[in-house]
Nucleic acid binder design. Structure first.
Lengths: 362, 362
DNA sequence: CGCTGTGTTGCGAGCGCTCCCGTCCCTCTC
DNA sequence: GAGAGGGACGGGAGCGCTCGCAACACAGCG
């Protein structure tokens, strides 16, 4: 009672605090807090009254104070690994954008928001934001950021299975081997005799697994591997690599490109060499872009289902944040989808119903 | 001295606090704070010592506490308006992704991070995160979120000039009228006699300004407007609208498409009608996508320079957060760039050097 | 009339920092 | 040798909220 009644320093400046609401409603701070958060056992009348006063004053609780007190910020980090000099690609490929969007929606639906953070960054940025957990896209081997986060006891869920022995809480990924094998079989079934691969020089798991799957398949069916690798983060290098691939003496009659822009790259290269698609060259690439539905010809694409992945990743993370700490990593595999278009089908397949030569079955 | 020496409750659990560092370094909490933040006047020896102890203990300052105390969170909201049912497009068009990426980098460089937030959202999500300011992409007329933020005294900078009388702190935009006029002139110079427009049904300023500019231009040069509008958020509607446009009895011999996918849409439609590009139909669309460099033929695009916009928006916002509150809105216009490719040039323009008929010069 | 039960409400102690000051002590000056 | 000056550090009050627990009112019961 001593000086509690005086309206504090600047008083009439800035936004209303919980104190002001309490005073205006004639109740205690605790009651306001309880009323607004649906806690405690207050009669509905009180609750309503407080709520009413609160939004008459335009009261908004201070997120900082709440976070400090409760230890939960409702913030989830979204991290993309750096490519080359650019802070992160994020958009070079529609995949990231789609994934991020789905993740954002999923987080929002559960009351969380996403904070975009670069994987390689000085500590100060990371420690300037109170995170409840982090989503890491495509973590690199022994990622220092991930280790640090885990050390701090924050749950980390990765999109893409972690390389090495990264101690992530959970991960979500596609079955890249199965996807590649499926495509190769698809191409072979369409009549391909020598299937080439356009791949990357980086060492992330996606590239690794896909390339390995290709090599294994080649060995199994007895085909010599025909592939070109290029730094995937360089948009120009793709066109060059596509050109190289089709310029080879052992030119493939079908190509699978691992990266989003490869479709147009390969199409352009094919034109340069006078190759008709799909007649002389079958084409498939991994992409989320809808432009391939309208290219000439439309190109068969493999979708990694970024939306499902983004959603799954966030669900797992929030489960880990809120729920019981499951002791072993949770792993989730999302199926891919092959969207078959003209580029991977021999014209109508009328004349010859069965593929010309099916290389080694099983 | 009563119980200050006891190491607090759980003590050995959780992360080290500033208290632990102080104790371990044999200095006061204040000294630790000052040493770590480069404030106060401490000898370098002390500063080094404290820093060393701090990271021996793996100390990370609590962002929540700092935010609560200082009132600055280092967090900037990034908001996209909702289209249709989808939370927000964000990625439908490469523009948003590019812009968001540039904004992220710019923010990071100044020690801020971006929080992705939907424009239409219940208060609870917004008030759950302590924002220092907000970037709003394409704010709609009388956007309630913007008003609310401004009412709270937060600076708001918009990408796209605010419709109505939205009280934003600053905005960045392209000169859409000039851009459209430039394209129309470009097409006319390439020999177009009847230029069509593929536009949107929504009422955002981009669509509005662009369409109006088109109509004005038509009136000025005495051409009957030929356009089709469709809901831009629907990816399928674009192809249909493109088709409609080319099916018209007064079929245009050149088309400008306002939205990213329009290039492929129009190209596909042209093929359906047996129109050769650019011989029978000149094509330009507004897009940030690089696929148009490799289509058949490559398509001329207008770039809105999302990177520059994203950067500018963030700079203005952070200036507003940190610097002097400038009393009137700051406005910044970013020039567009027309990337001329085959689709908007008559074949080599050799036979006829000057355009067949230049409609009304100035 | 005291005692327990039930239903409401408030006290007060922090969450982990930052920052305004005050204190202490050492050095310099006249 | 005393006072002034200034460099080095620490005390302590919060920032605005949440939450365990205590307090209080009022009923019924023995």
């Amino acid at each position: 009672m001593s000086r509690a009644e005086t309206p504090r320093r600047g008083s009439r400046t800035s936004r209303a605090g919980i104190r002001d609401v309490a005073a205006a409603a004639g109740v205690s701070i605790t009651t306001v807090s309880d009323a607004l958060n649906g806690k405690g056992r207050l009669p509905d009348a009180t609750r309503r009254h407080v709520r009413e006063v609160a939004d008459r004053l335009g009261y908004r609780p201070s997120a900082a104070a709440r976070t400090l007190r409760t230890g939960k910020s409702g913030l989830i980090g979204l991290t993309v690994t750096t490519y080359g000099d650019e802070p992160f690609t994020f958009t070079e490929f529609a995949y990231f954008a789609e994934m991020a969007r789905a993740a954002t929606s999923a987080a929002l639906a559960r009351g969380y928001a996403l904070v975009i953070l670069p994987a390689t960054s000085r500590h100060d940025v990371w420690s300037n934001v109170a995170l409840d957990g982090t989503v890491v896209i495509d973590p690199s081997d022994h990622d220092p950021v991930v280790s640090e986060l885990v050390r701090q006891g924050l749950p980390v869920v990765s999109d893409g299975r972690p390389a090495g022995s990264l101690p992530v809480t959970a991960w979500v990924d596609n079955d890249h081997e199965a996807a590649v094998l499926g495509i190769l079989d698809h191409l072979a079934a369409a009549g391909a005799r020598r299937i080439g691969l356009l791949t990357g020089t980086s060492t992330d798991t996606y590239t690794n697994l896909s390339t390995t799957a290709y090599l294994n398949w080649c060995e199994r069916v007895g085909q010599d591997p025909v592939y070109e690798a290029y730094p995937a983060h360089d948009p120009c290098a793709g066109a060059v690599a596509a050109d190289r691939l089709l310029a080879r003496p052992d030119r493939p009659d079908a190509v699978y490109g691992l990266f989003d822009p490869n479709g147009t790259d390969l199409l352009a290269a094919a034109r340069r060499y006078g190759l008709r698609v799909p007649d002389d060259l079958l084409l498939v690439c991994c992409s989320e872009s809808s432009v391939y539905a309208n290219t000439e010809p439309p190109i068969t694409t493999l979708s990694l289902k970024p939306r499902r992945i983004g959603t799954a990743v966030v669900q797992l993370l929030i489960d880990a944040i809120e729920g019981v700490e499951s002791d072993q990593p949770v792993e989730q595999v999302i199926p891919t989808e092959l969207i078959v278009r003209t580029s991977s089908q021999r014209r109508q397949a009328r004349p010859i119903v069965s593929p010309p030569r099916s290389p080694g079955q099983g």
